[in-house]
Amino acid sequence: MKSVQTGTVGTVDVIDVERPVPGPGDALMRVRACGICGTDVAFLHMGGMPQGPGGQTAPIPLGHEPAGEIVEVGAEVTGLKAGDRVVVNPQGAPSGIIGCGGALGGMSEYLIIENAVVGKSVAVIPDSVPFDVAALNEPMAVARHCVNRSEARATDKVVVFGAGPIGLGATIWLKLRGVEHVTVADVIPEPLETALAVGADAVIDSSREDVTARLAELHGQGANALGQPRPDTDIYIDAAGVAIVANTALRSAKWGAKLVVVAAHKKPEPIDLGAMLRSEMTIVASQGYPTEIFEVTEEIAQHQELFARLISHRVPFSDVERAFELTLTPGAAEKVVVTFDEQP
């Protein structure tokens, strides 16, 4: 079968590997769609996974956002049968995180689901859910954990920085949670249009607008701990991963506001702790999906038309190199999903 792994810096290699054979407790999935994530792009920039103190890299299988159908189950597997449509938990594989340094990658024609336990390593999805939408399950679990960490209430006013898949996913979950007002900020106009399409109440083009002033217009006027005027924004979500976002939140925050950081900041960056003191701001980190990986599955099925709007490009596996080129080009794509409809 064909499988994708990291190549030289900035490239992928499509290699031939043996089609896996499931053991008694495993299931074999035919991959029908797999999303490309910013983590995949990070591995491409490094040329693989760093190994040891010397900084050398080794190639790794890619893809941790697969959806597909079961073609074979081991004798000890219960709750699964051939023909079931499924999504997987990339962190549930004993051989390591799928597509993130583990032995397996979801950007392959077939994927072994090790220790296939429904609700733990795999979940069945309704036949009505397209595979490309189902492939959003993993990133939407990341976005859901972020919203859960925010503890947003219906009366809260929230701003999401970054209109990528995680920021837009958080926007969807916030609105489905009943949050009163959600604003999305980004420097690229096209994703802001998508933000409005998936339910954002307002958007801010932060490349040309004063974010703090616009938030005051949208959310009203509050004050920090010193009584200085600040936007009445309750929660700031950093889904962008740049220092200016964190510092904008710190300097704009009213007394008792919260900052939730879900984006990966690639290097240490200075932040204004004095501004944090003036607002008594709470900073919360959000990593992965400790419980959310299958918490989101049913709701994605219920609101599949909404989540489908997040996909900007569907690229066949036969053209997978182009799919990764799109994700490596800033501003070229919002969410790329590779489809496997042509496989035998």
Score class of each variant (00 low, 15 high):
residue 14 V to F: 01
residue 107 M to W: 06
residue 287 Q to P: 00
residue 102 G to Q: 08
residue 170 A to I: 05
residue 112 I to E: 07
residue 39 T to V: 00
residue 130 P to W: 09
residue 264 A to W: 10
residue 55 G to L: 00
residue 260 V to W: 01
residue 30 R to F: 00
residue 28 L to T: 00
residue 197 A to Y: 01
residue 97 I to D: 13
residue 255 W to L: 15
residue 4 V to C: 01
residue 53 P to Y: 07
residue 210 D to I: 01
residue 325 E to T: 14
residue 296 V to W: 13
residue 146 C to N: 08
residue 320 V to H: 10
residue 265 H to G: 12
residue 253 A to S: 15
residue 134 A to G: 11
residue 292 E to T: 06
residue 263 A to F: 01
residue 144 R to F: 15
residue 42 A to Y: 07
residue 218 L to I: 10
residue 148 N to C: 08
residue 76 E to W: 00
residue 264 A to T: 10
residue 45 H to Q: 11
residue 249 A to H: 12
residue 114 E to L: 08
residue 196 L to N: 03
residue 22 P to M: 06
residue 221 Q to I: 10
residue 304 Q to V: 02
residue 159 V to G: 08
residue 208 R to N: 07
residue 249 A to D: 09
residue 74 G to E: 11
residue 3 S to K: 06
residue 38 G to H: 03
residue 32 R to W: 03
residue 313 H to Q: 13
residue 223 A to G: 02
residue 70 I to G: 03
residue 284 V to D: 10
residue 294 F to L: 14
residue 247 N to A: 07
residue 161 F to L: 13
residue 77 V to T: 11
residue 293 I to R: 07
residue 47 G to P: 01
residue 219 H to S: 08
residue 304 Q to L: 06
residue 96 G to C: 11
residue 221 Q to V: 15
residue 225 A to H: 15
residue 281 M to K: 12
residue 234 D to F: 07
residue 252 S to N: 12
residue 51 Q to C: 00
residue 135 A to V: 06
residue 309 R to I: 07
residue 24 P to N: 08
residue 140 M to D: 14
residue 198 V to N: 02
residue 7 G to N: 04
residue 136 L to N: 03
residue 329 T to F: 07
residue 94 P to S: 07
residue 344 P to W: 01
residue 276 M to G: 12
residue 282 T to E: 15
residue 234 D to G: 08
residue 249 A to M: 14
residue 126 P to Q: 08
residue 302 Q to D: 09
residue 133 V to P: 12
residue 151 E to I: 01
residue 291 T to L: 09
residue 80 L to P: 11
residue 342 E to Y: 03
residue 237 I to D: 07
residue 46 M to H: 02
residue 327 T to W: 00
residue 101 G to S: 09
residue 19 R to S: 10
residue 199 G to E: 09
residue 236 Y to D: 06
residue 153 R to I: 04
residue 165 P to F: 02
residue 327 T to G: 02
residue 145 H to S: 12
residue 344 P to Q: 09
residue 227 G to V: 11
residue 293 I to M: 15
residue 102 G to S: 09
residue 318 S to Y: 10
residue 61 P to H: 04
